[in-house]
Design a protein around this nucleic acid. Structure first.
Lengths: 211, 211
DNA sequence: CGCCGAACAGGACACTTGTCCTGTTTCTGA
DNA sequence: TCAGAAACAGGACAAGTGTCCTGTTCGGCG
């Protein structure tokens, strides 16, 4: 008499795993389609999760969005920018390597979804103060990593004409903007062009210190 | 006996006026909150229009979005970038003027909503091919105007070391990216910093022609 | 073994979304 | 003057939206 709604025999509790699948699905969807353009229903389906599970791990959509920025976007910046900068022979080479790797990756996959951080930044910065704070922190970490690398070069006698903080801001801005142009044209050319222009600026900046 | 639903006595047909109010409201909302975050209901209320009127002028939301890009975003780029470039004494001064005017405007109003073109570009480029084509056209017109101004300078013997097209790409990218950073930090500083770095690059580029 | 909280199932819920439809009013041209 | 089209009113509509709620099951601990 009592309803027995499919015993769900194979279920096994896996909090970390399910949470990871949810954040992965959300990261992919938010950074390609956008935050508002992605529905919770799609995420549930993509991650193979039910409403109850989703609600348990992330009570609101905003919680999921914050987790995406903190756990995925920050790592993406770390992986594509900060690590290459660390392992390169100079700031200039590290910057070129980062640009080049991403441009090649875009050309390989044939579509440009844009910079994950930038995508979420423009959509959510004014939407919610918590989002804004998280995003700003990632931008700042990125910028500071580049500036620090330039300072290291200066200590070694390179790039004496560059203002580390100011030029790092330019690098981040040029990359973000170039990616926006690349997304609009669905072509990696703006990235390659900006990389080359930045290289030229750094090369000329190797002279005497700035005013 | 027959229903007489408020005779609406004061009504006067004003197609152009109502259409303009609708596009104005949509431009303001799309560029500050975003396309998907803005509802048709809000736009109706803001523009003082009814569903019938909105549906008459813009059958779908996409039609309204395309009108915003074509009739407002393109004009905004014209006004804030192309005109200043035309009236300046040199490309460098025009670029500085554009950056400076916008940074001052942001500081005056105390909030950074971001570059209208960039906001819509990141949200809609991958959402719909028609949007992407419109946005790409605006980007290209913007970039080409800068390149053309640099070519004019070269013809006059200035900035001989600059590649007009490549540097114009860098300018557009730096501005777009700086605006994204400004939006995330709610501070115009990235704009001013990038403007100064671009000025330095142009100054150093006044030497011998590039390789 | 018994137990209890965490993990998850599955659907109800109220609300909003964009679009469309039927009328009514205004304007233009013949 | 008088159709007839364009401009607009106002609400209906289905299809979603995000969130919440009541159960059921798993897993560790005494």
């Amino acid at each position: 008499m009592a309803k027995q709604p499919a015993p769900a025999r194979g279920r096994t509790n896996d909090p970390e795993g399910l949470r990871r699948r949810l954040v992965d699905a959300a990261y992919a969807a938010f950074t390609t389609q956008g935050y508002h353009a992605t529905s919770m229903h799609d995420l549930k389906r993509e991650a193979g999760a039910t409403g109850g599970a989703l609600s348990h791990h992330f009570p609101t959509k905003k919680d999921l969005g914050l987790a995406v920025i903190r756990d995925r976007v920050a790592d993406a910046v770390e992986e594509t920018w900060i690590e290459p900068l660390r392992s390169a022979a100079s700031a200039s080479e590290g910057i070129q390597a980062a640009f080049s790797a991403i441009a090649s990756e875009l050309e390989r996959r044939g579509a440009v979804s844009g910079c994950p951080l930038n995508n979420l930044a423009l959509e959510l910065s004014r939407h919610d103060p918590d989002f804004r704070a998280q995003i700003e922190a990632v931008f700042e970490r990125w910028r500071e990593a580049i500036a620090e690398r330039i300072r290291a070069d200066r200590a070694a006698g390179l790039a004496a004409g560059l203002d580390p903080d100011a030029f790092a801001t330019l690098v981040v801005a040029a990359y973000s903007g170039a990616m926006a142009m690349a997304k609009a044209s669905q072509d990696a050319a703006p990235l390659r062009i900006c990389a080359e222009q930045l290289a030229r600026a750094m090369q000329e900046g190797r002279g005497s210190p700035a005013a």
